[in-house]
Amino acid sequence: MHADDHGHDHTDPDAHAPSPDDPPPASDWEFLEQALSELLIESGVIEEADIQRMMNFTESRNPALGAKVVARTWTDSDFRSRLLRDARRTLREEMDIDIGTIAELEAVENTDAVHHVVVCTLCSCYPRNLLGIPPAWYKSREYRARVVREPRAVLKEFGTTLPPGTSIRVLDSTADLRYLVVPRRPAGTEDWPAERLESLVTRDSMIGTAPATEPKA
């Protein structure tokens, strides 16, 4: 694998390569990671630069990126329609975001009538090429097991109470299909520009365990 395999050039001053200043491995698993890295590099399978580039790429995909997408759906209804119809193409053509080859992405819109919440009951599938690494709770057995059976109780643990008239659709992700929840736009933000709206779009609101943040009165 060579440095030019990936079309992304994200440089991050905080990128953390192992260096003589790093503490030595503390656990068996850390020793294993270091052994595998060294052996793969010595065998010519990868280079250290590949690891650094992949870490930087992953960091470049984070909830702030998803928030830009959601805020744009709130201010551009044509964009919203296209995103809901074909997220991969719309993100690539209109936001220069490549969601990669591993899985499809489907955007689903929350409304007064239906609220979506995303899980991966079997493992940890997540729209990581848009939102980055999933939070630990998303990967926990407790969340995976319970949210499909008692979504209202789980949402309540997250501090989210939906009106009784709002139905809940729980979307179980697969290796091949990941979901982005488009939360409802909070009231009182009608004259807000997209940049300001982005600040209301939290990671959890794009998973569906919370609504978008209400603006401060």
Binding site: T121, W137, S140, E142, R144, A145, R146, V148, R149, E157
Partner: peptide, 9 residues
């Protein structure tokens, strides 16, 4: 494990 009974998250 989908649907099984687990504790608090």
């Amino acid at each position: 494990i989908g649907g099984l009974d687990f504790g608090a998250i």
